[in-house]
């Protein structure tokens, strides 16, 4: 039996290589996010954003861009028989869950590396809040990656898969988004970052991530049985 870690590395490597060669998800996610900023600029009729408005815009944009990626994360497995392969292979099925979540996490990091500076360039009067935003982004990425993987694997084997992902995911990430926007809004105040409840919100995110990592890791193998 191949060790779980080898399987994890193989699946993650395969996913990242395919994404590098085909560019199926990431460019679309980035384009979507940048275009959304333009819509927000006219929708809100503001050229400068700060505080909770800035937090709301950045998190809505990232969340909906993430959904584009989450929709596609298992599409190749379904179309090319990757699910059958993992069922046949003598490896721990949870390795696939972890590898997919890691791939999604990587996508989100790349997305944010481009989109968050673009957002700052477009809207933010001063940028000192961006560095303390990194732990918030990491915490939200982990939650989105884990839940996205779980939901995507549930939805991809149903008839209405593109419809179900946002439908199932949005209510589930409400607490994560409350924590993320709650931590981000004081960081983007025009007078410079303040840290109201910053630690508390990070703790909430850590709790959320921890619970859904455990749930996802435990239930994932039942989604692969056939």
């Amino acid at each position: 039996m191949t060790s779980s870690f080898t399987a994890f590395k193989a699946i993650l490597g395969k996913d990242l290589r395919t994404e590098l060669r085909t560019m199926r998800s990431l460019p679309a996610m980035i384009l979507f996010a940048v275009t959304t900023f333009i819509i927000f600029r006219f929708g809100l009729d503001r050229t400068v954003l700060s505080g909770s408005l800035a937090g709301g815009v950045i998190w809505m944009t990232l969340l909906f861009a993430a959904i584009l990626g989450i929709n596609r994360i298992f599409l190749a497995e379904r179309e090319e028989g990757g699910f059958d392969a993992i069922r046949l292979a003598p490896v721990d099925r949870s390795a696939m869950f972890l590898a997919k979540a890691a791939a999604l996490f990587t996508y989100l990091v790349v997305l944010e590396l481009i989109v968050v500076p673009t957002f700052a360039l477009f809207f933010l009067p001063q940028w000192s809040g961006l560095i303390p935003m990194i732990p918030v982004l990491a915490g939200a990425n982990l939650g989105l990656a884990v839940l996205g993987t779980l939901i995507s694997s549930m939805a991809v084997n149903s008839r209405a898969r593109d419809l179900l992902v946002p439908l199932l995911l949005l209510p589930l990430v409400v607490p994560l988004m409350i924590a993320a926007t709650g931590a981000t809004a004081p960081l983007l105040e025009p007078a410079g970052p303040t840290y109201d409840d910053y630690g508390t919100w990070l703790l909430v995110m850590a709790l959320y991530d921890g619970i859904f990592c455990l749930v996802g890791y435990t239930v994932f193998e039942f989604l692969l049985e056939d």
Binding site: L150, M154, N157, S158, L168, L172, V174, P175, I178, A179, G182, T200, V204, L207, Y208, I211, F212, V215, G216, V219, F222, L223, E225, D226
Partner: peptide, 28 residues
Amino acid sequence: DRQARYASVFAITAGAFVPLNFMAVRMA
């Protein structure tokens, strides 16, 4: 069979979500 299994996974995930959600919304 798959319907039953997937629905159970949903029920477990959602069940874990209920208390978390109440906590987060109350804190906000």
